[in-house]
């Protein structure tokens, strides 16, 4: 589903990604862990072209992200096509980023109505079902500031799911939450994983990574240091840097 080969990204003189190689298979759940500033979020943002990569190849579902290849040449995609591709990838942010001037339901139906131009009669029932699925059937008409952090994040997940994405990206979805609200969000994500959604999750929730992920990836200094089956990965990390990191947080 996602294939990265030697992905590089720099911000000015700071090289954030220095050759990421990673593949994510359909229906696979990959958790990316690692220290702050290691390039985890940047990599995630590159996958839906919120950031442009400087070198390497990055493709989603067999198609290059942001470019079209013809022979040896790369052509930049026009905005409209970038938008269409983004609409097929759901993204959940650390700080929720719900639209504060819209109710929970309006947040969820906005993109299906405006981007996919699906009929209201179809979108609204689906949105209600989604909000029910994330346990918020009683908060449909609430504005984001009337919801707790955990509730907001669950609306954000429903909003992403409403576009029926083939891939979901989670950028530290529980890092801005009170500890007691983390569980409700992770439960929703676990349910998604069980339903076979392809997910790339940047997280500090090691318990979630161990239980739910098919693969754990440790990223530091802009490269993938180590990856493996989660139980083995957490039980006996091979790389010295991974051991050092895990010893501090477990």
């Amino acid at each position: 589903m996602v294939k990265a080969e030697g992905v590089h990204k720099r911000f000015g003189r700071l090289e954030v990604l220095r050759g990421i190689d990673l593949e994510v298979a359909p229906r696979e759940v990959v958790c990316i862990i690692g220290p702050s500033g290691g390039g985890k979020s940047t990599f995630l943002r590159c996958i839906n072209h919120l950031e442009k990569i400087d070198a390497g190849r990055l493709s989603v579902d067999g198609e290059l992200v942001g470019y079209r290849q013809q022979g040896d040449k790369l052509y930049e995609l026009p905005d409209s096509e970038v938008c269409t591709k983004r609409s097929e990838i759901g993204m959940v942010f650390q700080r929720f980023n719900l639209f504060p001037h819209m109710t929970a339901l309006e947040n969820v139906v906005e993109a299906p109505l405006r981007v996919k131009r699906q009929p209201k009669a179809e979108v609204i029932p689906r949105a209600r079902t989604l909000l029910e699925r994330v346990g918020l059937s009683d908060k449909i008409d609430a504005y984001p500031n009337q919801l707790s952090g955990g509730q907001q994040q669950r609306v954000a997940i429903a909003r992403a799911l409403a576009m029926q994405p083939k891939l979901m990206l989670f950028d530290e979805p529980t890092s801005a939450l009170d500890p007691e609200l983390v569980g409700e969000v992770l439960d929703v994500m676990r349910g998604l994983a069980e339903d076979g959604m392809t997910m790339v999750v940047v997280t500090h929730e090691m318990g979630f990574a161990r239980e739910v992920a098919n693969r754990a990836v440790f990223m530091d200094g802009g490269v993938v240091v180590e990856e493996g089956e989660p139980r083995a990965f957490f039980a006996s990390p091979q790389h010295a840097r991974t051991k050092q990191f895990l010893s501090k947080i477990l």
């Binding site: 919120l50 938008c83 269409t84 609409s87 504060p100 906005e110 993109a111």
Partner: peptide, 27 residues
């Protein structure tokens, strides 16, 4: 308007002018 709003709207596949009209300007 916080930049995260634009980013969230763009991640949903909204076009630049849609983001402006539906998300940013109302706020």
């Amino acid at each position: 308007v916080e930049h995260g709003q634009t980013e969230a709207a763009m991640a949903l596949g909204m076009r630049r002018l849609q983001v402006m009209r539906r998300i940013v300007l109302p706020q």
